[in-house]
């Protein structure tokens, strides 16, 4: 693999992280990050949908007139999300029970449409595949970071295990305000690193 190939994947991990830098997909990063388990489930599902939608959209970009490209992309994305939803419900009922509600929200996750518009519609299927994998992993990294902070502070747990025996956690951190606080501080920390 050439250097640029590796770069296409790894750019999304950190320096162009979709959540922390591009500020894409903030809705799920606030909603599903109540536990690391949920964050991982959402992350994996998003990687799958994002990679496939990037490839398909890169392949069909030639035959879709630009005036109706958005509805076409949405059809592709919605179909993929429904497939993921059904497969999870059939083969991983536990995960489906925990994050099933959020899976349906991937349809409106702006990461998917954002990458389709900004990248897949202008690049080859191979590069779009790499971009989808990288951006998906970057999304998952951000989700897991936020979820780890919130689960430890808000529920005193990590992966469902107690972290500090006897300590009563700050319940507000697993609620919506905790999500905004955590995301805000992570964005701040990332900006501080980029500036120096």
């Amino acid at each position: 693999m050439s250097v640029s190939t590796v770069k296409e994947v790894t750019k999304g991990f950190w320096e162009k992280n979709p959540v922390l830098v591009l500020a894409l997909g903030l809705c799920p990063s606030l909603a599903v990050t109540t536990s690391v388990r949920n964050a991982l489930g959402m992350g994996v599902s998003t990687i799958f949908v994002l990679t496939l939608s990037n490839v398909i959209i890169a392949l069909i970009k030639g035959i879709v007139p630009s005036q109706i490209r958005i509805p076409c992309y949405i059809i592709v994305i919605a179909t993929l999300v429904t497939i993921v939803d059904l497969v999870l419900a059939a083969y991983f009922p536990d995960i489906s029970k925990a994050i099933g509600l959020f899976i349906k929200l991937i349809v409106v996750n702006c990461i998917i449409l954002g990458r389709a518009e900004a990248f897949a519609a202008k690049n080859t299927a191979w590069r779009s595949l790499l971009d989808g994998i990288g951006m998906g992993i970057g999304f998952m990294i951000a989700l897991v970071l936020i979820a780890a902070v919130r689960e430890v502070l808000g529920a005193n747990k990590l992966f469902g295990f107690t972290v500090f025996p006897g300590w009563r956690p700050i319940a507000v951190m697993v609620l919506a305000p905790g999500a905004f606080l955590t995301l805000g501080f992570l964005l701040g920390a990332k900006n501080l690193r980029m500036r120096t």
């Binding site: 009563r168 700050i170 319940a171 507000v172 951190m173 609620l175 305000p177």
Partner: peptide
């Protein structure tokens, strides 16, 4: 307000 939400 924070404490009221954190330790109701």
């Amino acid at each position: 307000a924070f404490l009221l939400a954190a330790y109701p």
